[in-house]
């Protein structure tokens, strides 16, 4: 099956490739699996993964190192040939019509330059627009707007090699968007960006999804980015999905939360006993006592209060800490990873 995913001589022009099948999901992945190695050394990086993504949505792909995110993205894009499964981009099967399917998509891959540093910013946009099958002269206005939105106008005629890391990251994104792909994969797009640039990028992604119906698949270790910008989150662990929902629903679904207790009664023995009895996230020494944050779920707060009362600890302040995406992520991936061990990215 994977053999057929390879590019072959199709009688389509880049123009014909820009067609889409109406009402099809932007991305439809069905039963994709990839195993590296043979026999006892075989490692399943992606294990029978299926999902659809609607057009114009931003989907976050999360997972610990080795969960299979990059392999999944590369399998979707054909950079890694999957052992099994089908991938459709705007309804076009990438095996059957790779060139037409590739006209729908572009990607910014982690750890790569993705563009030519010896060319200027504008030259990169023009070049990658052309290889994506879009006449750069016809979209010069869009390129200019892209430069403005990513605050690259002043650097448009500067060679990329002379820009800062954050700027280079922006150029990489701009060159991906320059070709007018309707589905964009971004692997760690905020890596190396300062807070302000990261926010600008998030705003721009949201605008692209809302105004231009561009579908974004975003892989990032930055939970704030995922939480802020994504409509939906897919969490991977050990080659498969352990969660797939909107950020709100995922947060609602978890019972895990933190309880912060401040007491002057805490001493070394009590803190040690507390750590044995509960999942203690943090301890901050005070004089006297301490501030501790305990991870708990459901009615766990009552157990904690009972435990403190039986040891004559009087809480001076108690506060619950709402779970964030990071807590949920750690909870889900810990649970999933522990029984089976790691996998190859």
């Amino acid at each position: 099956m994977s053999e057929r995913l390879e590019q072959r001589g199709e009688s389509v022009t880049p123009d014909e490739g820009r067609e889409t099948e109406s009402r099809a999901p932007a991305l439809a992945v069905d039963g994709v699996s990839k195993t590296f190695g043979d026999g006892e050394d075989a490692v399943t990086a992606v294990d029978d993964v299926s999902f659809d993504i609607e057009s114009g949505s931003i989907v976050g792909l999360l997972g610990p190192n080795g969960a299979g995110k990059t392999t999944l993205i590369k399998s979707i894009l054909g950079m890694v040939l999957p052992d099994e499964g089908t991938v459709r981009l705007n309804g076009i099967d990438i095996r059957e019509r790779p060139r037409a399917a590739y006209a729908q998509v572009d990607a910014m891959l982690e750890g790569a330059r993705n563009d030519y540093w010896r060319l200027t910013v504008r030259e990169n946009l023009r070049y990658f627009s052309t290889v994506a099958g879009v006449d750069p002269d016809a979209v010069a206005n869009q390129h200019q707007r892209l430069l403005e939105q990513l605050e690259l106008t002043d650097k448009a005629d500067t060679a990329v090699r002379d820009l800062s890391r954050g700027m280079k990251q922006k150029v990489s994104l701009a060159s991906v968007l320059a070709g007018g792909a309707s589905i964009v994969f971004l692997d760690e797009p905020t890596l190396g960006l300062d807070v302000e640039s990261s926010r600008t990028l998030q705003t721009e992604l949201r605008r692209l999804a809302t105004e231009q119906d561009i579908t974004v698949v975003l892989s990032s270790h930055d939970m704030d980015v995922i939480e802020t910008v994504c409509d939906r989150v897919l969490i991977m662990s050990d080659g498969t999905f352990v969660a797939d929902d909107s950020v709100e629903e995922l947060l609602r679904s978890t019972d895990v939360y933190g309880v912060r207790v401040v007491s002057s009664d805490f001493d070394d023995d009590l803190l040690s006993a507390l750590q044995n009895a509960f999942e203690v996230r943090s301890v901050e020494r005070l004089s006297p006592g301490a501030r501790v944050e305990v991870e708990t779920e459901g009615d766990g707060i009552y157990e904690l209060m009972d435990w403190l009362r039986t040891r004559d600890v009087t809480p001076e302040r108690v506060r619950t800490v709402e779970p964030g995406l990071e807590d949920l992520f750690l909870d889900l991936t810990d649970r999933a990873v522990q029984p089976t061990g790691g996998s190859l990215e």
Binding site: T13, P14, D15, R18, R126, Y127, S129, T130, V131, G133, V134, D135, P136, D137, A138, V139, N141, Q142, H143, R145, A178, G179, G180, A181, S182, E211, Q212, I214
Partner: peptide, 22 residues
Amino acid sequence: MSASQSPAESRRTAGYPKLIKA
């Protein structure tokens, strides 16, 4: 072509002559 159009919407395609030039 309006400023709000995306490159995808404009569909002004580049064929092989443009690729060769690029």
